[in-house]
């Protein structure tokens, strides 16, 4: 089921400002910057060994990331695990009646993804992703 930690999501107010620390000070390489208009977020992916740090900046003020920022401020937001079969895993979780945010996989920056509800994992927001071969 779970293979690796694909990335750790960090919510920031301003990606440019955050790159001043994560890229310029810590020396991490940026390999992708993308705006997901349908989700109202902009993301920068930084390489960390065989994993990634994903900086997320809301570009609208009424989505989950924006509300998270408003309520809890900048910081750690979610952990994303790479899986082989997101459809199969999601079905298994539904069968176990695990509380989910997504009932169907959708396309995210990391591939086909779904989010569990944080209450399912003791307060940690967990994302599963099945990368799409490029």
């Amino acid at each position: 089921m779970i293979k690796n930690v694909h990335h750790v999501g960090v919510v920031v107010r301003d990606i440019e400002q955050a790159l001043g620390f994560y890229r310029d000070t810590l020396g991490l390489r940026v390999h992708k910057i993308q705006t997901m208009d349908d989700q109202g977020v902009r993301a920068a992916l930084l390489t960390l060994g065989d994993s990634e740090i994903e900086l997320l900046q809301p570009v609208v003020d009424d989505n989950g990331v924006a509300r998270y920022l408003e309520r809890r401020g900048e910081g750690l937001h979610h952990v994303c695990f790479e899986v082989d079969d997101v459809d199969g895993d999601l079905r298994a979780l539904q069968k176990m009646q695990v509380e989910l945010i997504d009932q169907e996989p959708r396309i995210g920056i990391a591939g086909r993804i779904c989010f569990l509800h944080p209450s399912a994992m003791d307060g940690t927001l967990v994302e599963l992703c099945e990368p799409i071969p490029s």
């Binding site: 890229r23 810590l26 020396g27 390489r29 390999h31 910057i33 920068a44 960390l48 060994g49 952990v79």
Partner: peptide, 29 residues
Amino acid sequence: ESRLPQGAAYDRAPERRAFTLTALDHLVL
């Protein structure tokens, strides 16, 4: 992203660094 498909302009991590972050070691919950 409209002009820089690889995020090239953003990949400005300095070439010579005093240290390198090599991996995500663990997450503390």
